[in-house]
């Protein structure tokens, strides 16, 4: 065998790939499930918190800012490990999937709350005052006048942050979630061949390249013109 053939046989072994591609495909499904759950719950929670913050209840806001800061400062993997290995000590035993979902959704919640809040404060005061003086209530002003303007501002930063956090689903492999990386890693140790890892890498690219390209488009499309 030439060196090139040996390389192909090691990293692109057709036999190994044929055996393990259903596993990787299953991993893709789990990754997508996890990602969708994280994105929906994380952004919804972040938006809810930002709206609550607009009510201006001082003690609540201090607490909120502190929690958001904690979630922004801790590495997501530390939060996953804390949930997965910590909670069982108080007889709550979350699965790896739930731990990863919870941790990533909390992180996305924190980041998106910050982004939504920055968007809300970026809407000029005059908008508030004008809306209130036409007789709209505080809630009507917030939801009908301020949020539509704020949301547009938040789209570019929110997109890139969401993509970055969604890639964190790979961290689930550390706590035995059978997503792409987990499936690929166990296939590598079962077959003693790195080809499944190449399949896994391809699976990530198939999932995320379109997302990154779409994100690039969204960022330019909604860019905040100076």
């Amino acid at each position: 065998m030439t060196g090139w053939e040996r390389f192909l046989d090691t990293f692109f072994n057709a036999r190994v790939m044929a055996k393990y591609w259903p596993d990787i495909l299953y991993g893709m499904v789990v990754t997508v499930e996890l990602a969708v759950l994280v994105v929906i719950s994380g952004i919804a929670a972040g938006l809810a918190l930002a709206l609550l913050r607009a009510l201006g209840i001082r003690v609540f806001n201090w607490l909120l800012i502190f929690v958001v800061d904690v979630l922004r400062a801790l590495p997501p993997l530390v939060i996953i490990v804390l949930i997965y290995f910590g909670l069982p000590s108080v007889d709550i035993v979350p699965s790896g999937f739930v731990s990863t979902w919870l941790a990533l959704a909390l992180v996305l919640m924190a980041f998106s709350e910050e982004i939504f809040w920055a968007g809300i404060t970026a809407v000029p005061r005059g908008q508030w005052e004008a809306a209130r003086s036409t007789g709209l209530s505080f809630i009507q002003t917030l939801l009908g006048v301020v949020m539509p303007q704020a949301l547009r501002l938040t789209i570019p930063p929110l997109t890139s942050r969401t993509i970055a956090i969604t890639k964190g689903t790979a961290l689930g492999s550390v706590v035995a979630v059978s997503e792409i990386l987990g499936q690929a890693s166990s296939a590598v140790s079962n077959s003693y061949n790195p080809s499944p890892l190449m399949l896994g890498a391809a699976a990530y690219l198939v999932l995320f390249i379109p997302v990154v390209v779409a994100g690039r488009w969204v960022e330019t499309r909604f860019a905040w013109k100076r």
């Binding site: 390389f7 090691t10 990293f11 890693s185 590598v188 790195p194």
Partner: peptide
């Protein structure tokens, strides 16, 4: 940007030794 850093890391750590 599309590649999760952990996947890259595992590739270097568990894949390259085969080469």
């Amino acid at each position: 940007r599309a590649f999760p850093p952990l996947v890259l890391l595992i590739f270097l750590y568990a894949g390259l030794p085969f080469a």
